[in-house]
Amino acid sequence: MTEKTPDILCIGSVLWDVIGRTASHMRVGSDVPGRIHRLPGGVAMNIAMTLVRFGLRPALLSALGRDAEGDELAAEAERMGMTVDHLYRSEDLPTDIYMAIEGANGLIAAVADAHSLEQAGDKILRPMGDGRLGSAEAPWTGLVALDGNLTTELLAQIAGSDLFAHADLRVAPASPGKAERLLALMGHPTATLYVNLEEAGLLCHATFETSEAAARALVARGAHRALVTDGGRAATVATADTVFTQTPPEVLVTRVTGAGDTFMAAHIASEAEGMGAEAALSRALAAAATYVSGDNPL
């Protein structure tokens, strides 16, 4: 191992978020003053940013264009403490971007121009097999965070690949609409699924009243381990042998987007530090609660 060996690989969406925010209520056709911010985003990037705050050094595996936007994003990720040497830089694909408008009455509209990651396909995984992060003879055996922005085909390829057979996979859907993509990883011997109650229902084609019922159903369906959250209600961790539930701290909710990524990263970091299962869940719930309250998650 060298000093440059990352603590975890974050595989998935890395892009620019362009967010316009206003204190005004908005409707179709509104033209109001506000602020426009450009920030690093994408599920894999969001998880990596939280992991950095917990003291880990993640490596990003994603697709960026060889354009000014890609250069700036890679430089910003490196400045924050991430390893960017293994990013796939495309000559003909642009750097992905997500654009949203938020008013006092919530998210008004959003457009995700995130086609480059899907078009790059398994090119983003080359470092896993060419010796940089692993090979067929010596595959990566550490932590891997996967996000559901990867195509169903690529997730299925990862599920069946010897290059990931001994990795500690941590998997999250990018959104409820992409939750069913994770079905490809249901039988993987090391995969941990991080989902909310709605996403668990989509994966199981059922409706659940509690996180415990959902987590048990995911394990019965083939998940190695499932962590199911339900907003401010109890969250559950389930494996074939153990099931336990905890209730998150009560806080005033000021934001929700990004809470799942914070929860997942905090849980991964806690287990990486050697915390037991129940302590890791408690810390992750506390970090997510602090995040949604609008404070720093640490």
Rank of each mutant, 00 (worst) to 15 (best):
A23Q: 12
E72H: 14
G258Q: 05
G41R: 04
L202W: 09
V292K: 10
L202Q: 06
A215W: 02
G55M: 08
V253E: 06
V43C: 01
A280Q: 00
L193D: 03
K4M: 15
L87S: 09
G274C: 03
A104K: 14
F54T: 09
M186D: 00
E72Q: 12
P6L: 07
G258N: 03
L61M: 10
A288G: 06
M82R: 05
S270C: 07
H267D: 06
T152Y: 06
D7A: 02
F263G: 07
R21S: 13
L252W: 10
D17K: 02
R79N: 10
A223T: 08
A238N: 09
G177F: 13
I124F: 03
R216Q: 12
L51A: 04
L202F: 00
A112F: 13
L203Q: 04
G131V: 01
I36L: 14
D92P: 02
E78H: 15
A44H: 00
L169F: 02
A110H: 14
E278S: 09
A277Y: 05
H224N: 10
R66N: 14
G201A: 14
M275E: 14
S13E: 08
M275Q: 15
P6E: 09
D147C: 01
V292T: 01
G260Q: 04
Q157D: 08
L185S: 02
I47N: 06
T141G: 02
A136W: 09
A174M: 03
P40R: 05
F208G: 04
V18N: 14
D92V: 03
A234H: 03
T141F: 02
A114N: 13
P139H: 08
D31A: 15
A120T: 00
V243D: 02
G276A: 00
R21H: 09
G222F: 01
L203H: 06
M99W: 15
I158V: 05
A44T: 03
L154V: 07
P189F: 03
E78G: 12
